[in-house]
């Protein structure tokens, strides 16, 4: 009967063995790691899950050479605009998508390798004042961008060679869209979270804006990570990077909220809070697992269905953790330090 409850988290209960260090890679030329991700890469008939590391001015692809050993195979040099984010593309092979900009995204580019002339290529997908971007199934990208007068929400399809095909626009809400999530199990549904803390739902096929539902004032600037539909309800996983600690709820990091899209009413289902004594977080979600870098330099991992913190990776002696991303497949956590060291943990 308790819609939203705080599960007490005791650090003693956290099973350190739930995260097992598998391997490390270190880019000796790097001193400014900004993001890490994984991508499927096929070469000479062999398809492998590779690691992509991004610094401000270059992006590198790392292949597994031997067990627990990674080798850098390609490095794309970028121009004057710094890389600020890698954009994972689900179900895609041999394509790396990056967002570049200063304080916010100004460009989206694709990076690829051409075997025809043995060269590394870059392809410009979009420019503008881009507020959010997400890679969708079937080699598509959705983004929101603002001009002074209006907001544009656009989907572009990408070819295998990195060319962009005709775009499709979605009806924009009045407020700025800050994050997107595909609705799992519903091919044509997409959700977004906005600057005034609303969830919006689109029909991807028709571009219609179907519903706008308010998340509530307790958790400002909520960010959607995952969404799925079940039994007539829309479940959305939200993170709350700026929520303040409260007596009733502790320090909220993630919530699963059930929305009834017919009535726009909602209820919290599971609540995941920060471990006691920790603050600040920048999170990533895969399946029912969430990970976040805390301001202490530790990484916390939660089971979102239980609402429990399941692992806490203390700051590495060589330097605090700065990045926490899930690999696009398998239960693998990519933990990064600013000096370019990436540690792969099995979860």
């Amino acid at each position: 009967d308790i819609a939203e409850h705080l599960t007490p988290v005791l650090l003693d209960d956290l099973r350190e063995e739930s995260l097992q260090l598998v391997s490390k890679l270190k880019d000796s030329s790097s001193s400014c790691a900004v993001d890490v991700s994984t991508v499927w890469w096929e070469a000479a008939g062999s398809r492998e899950l590779c690691v992509v590391t991004a610094c401000e001015s270059f992006v590198s692809l790392w292949k597994p050479l031997a067990p627990h050993c990674w080798g850098k195979v390609y490095t794309w040099q970028l121009g004057e605009i710094p890389v600020i984010q890698l954009v994972p593309l689900p179900d895609t092979c041999n394509l790396v998508c990056i967002a570049l900009g200063d304080l916010e995204i100004g460009e989206i580019r694709l990076l690829l390798y051409s075997s025809e002339n043995d060269s590394l290529k870059q392809s410009l997908v979009k420019t503008g004042n881009i507020k959010a971007v997400l890679g969708l199934r079937d080699r598509r990208l959705v983004s929101s961008s603002r001009t002074r007068q209006e907001q544009q929400v656009e989907i572009v399809s990408l070819s295998e060679t990195g060319r962009t095909r005709d775009g499709q626009t979605l009806m924009p809400p009045e407020e700025t869209v800050l994050a997107f999530a595909e609705v799992e199990g519903m091919r044509d549904a997409l959700v977004g979270t906005t600057a005034v803390n609303s969830i919006v739902v689109w029909n991807l096929k028709t571009g219609q804006l179907l519903k706008k539902m308010h998340v509530g004032y307790s958790y400002p600037t909520s960010i959607c990570h995952r969404a799925y539909s079940d039994s007539g309800l829309l479940f959305v996983v939200l993170s709350h990077p700026h929520a303040k600690e409260s007596e009733c709820c502790g320090n909220p990091a993630f919530r699963v909220i059930a929305f009834n899209p017919r009535t726009a009413r909602s209820r919290g289902v599971v609540f995941s809070s920060l471990p006691p004594g920790h603050a600040g977080r920048q999170g990533d979600v895969t399946g029912a697992s969430a990970a976040a870098v805390l301001t202490s330099g530790a990484i916390a991992v939660w089971d979102l269905l239980l609402g429990q913190c399941t692992a806490l990776l203390p700051p590495d002696p060589a330097g605090p953790w700065a990045l926490a991303r899930w690999a696009t497949t398998g239960a693998c956590l990519l933990a990064g330090q600013r000096d370019g060291t990436i540690s792969l943990y099995r979860y």
Partner: peptide, 23 residues
Amino acid sequence: CSESDLGPISLNWFEELSAEAPP
């Protein structure tokens, strides 16, 4: 979650909202 909290639930909410929303 129950209907008393969230109002009438429809399994076909996506199709229904698509039929009702402006094109």
